[in-house]
Design a protein around this nucleic acid. Structure first.
Lengths: 199, 199
DNA sequence: GTCTATAGGTGGATAGAC
DNA sequence: GTCTATCCACCTATAGAC
């Protein structure tokens, strides 16, 4: 049972990397089997269908992400710090030559089973809610300025822009491109008093 | 010869829609053959390999895009108008339930032949150059304000953010989400004097 | 839980008739 | 240019031994 958990996790780890680099339609059970030195049949014991595996991947990815957002909440107070930490989560993924798992499968959305589609939306919704709350708090504290816009819209822009920045930056193998985009995004949320350049 | 051209274009049209909705790894020659009521062998006469087809798709998409950018240059003068028209190009694609072709294949980048990868980057580079020029012009004319940032960085953010906004909006079947993101992006480029809300 | 073996289907691609 | 027919590699998935 303990071993079963461990094996399932090793499968998820390998599959996750494949999805984040090649897409859900860009790898096969054979690819995972080859990497883990097990047979395809063995994988089917843990995840009966590829759709089951895909769903498990997204659920786990979201749960880990939620935990990281909690850590940010525990360890930081100012909205500007929280946002910087949030951006750093994306950056770490890109630095590992990966795309966000959910951004990747969002591209393949139309080809995926409904169970996967629902989990993908849940990932974005969870991010949206957290960011909206952080941004609204930052505005109240005077650390952020929405200039008339809604916190929800700012949150949605941030998610989409970070996903898109990763998407394009990956084709240039350039984390710098991501960094430049993230810097501008955060600066655009800074209050007007006196804008400072992020290092 | 004229018929050959027409057939090749019909193939490209069908394939383009498949790539923009399902991804390059999400459709097959059989899908196109079925839609056009021809055989797979016939498709291979026009595009020997799927990689050839993919490359032709990206090249055509970019050429059409460049032509549209020229039209914008011909028909508008102010940078704000040009940017609004630019955003409208993306919006039209999303309204047709499609993802940007190059944003889609950017996700699958690692699985694609080099010839396709090069053309994808060229698409982004062309967009970057045009946008950088438009933004720099807008700043000189006082229609835009970069608040200390570089026009190139603003251009890159805009491309990535629009691609990402499409990517996420598609999973919610919501053009509104794209519109809200685009509005914020354009507002963030507006001069500080007095910010007005885009309708 | 993992294996061998295989089913049943689809992938891209080719040969050769018309 | 389009067809029929076919190749072979690969896909997801299952049956049944160990």
């Amino acid at each position: 049972m303990l071993d079963a958990m461990a094996t399932a996790d090793r499968i998820l780890d390998a599959a996750e990397r494949f999805v984040q680099t090649r897409g859900f339609n860009g790898f096969s059970y054979a690819d995972i089997a080859s990497e883990l030195d097990v047979t395809k049949a063995s994988l089917h014991y843990h995840f009966a269908t590829k759709g089951d595996l895909g769903r498990a991947l997204i659920v786990r990815y979201r749960e880990v992400f939620v935990r990281l957002l909690s850590e940010i909440d525990d360890e930081t107070k100012r909205a500007t710090e929280k946002l910087a930490r949030y951006v750093a989560l994306y950056r770490a993924v890109l630095s590992d030559d990966r795309m966000c798992l959910c951004g990747m499968v969002a591209a393949e959305y139309a080809t995926l089973p409904k169970a996967m589609q629902e989990e993908i939306r849940r990932f974005f919704s969870v991010n949206e809610e957290w960011l909206t709350s952080v941004i609204a708090g930052g505005v109240r504290a005077g650390d952020l300025d929405l200039r008339g816009g809604a916190a929800l819209d700012a949150a949605r822009l941030l998610i989409g822009a970070l996903e898109g920045a990763m998407l394009v930056a990956r084709t240039y193998k350039s984390v710098d491109r991501f960094d430049a985009a993230a810097r501008r995004l955060l600066e655009d949320l800074a209050p007007a008093k006196r804008r400072r350049r992020a290092s």
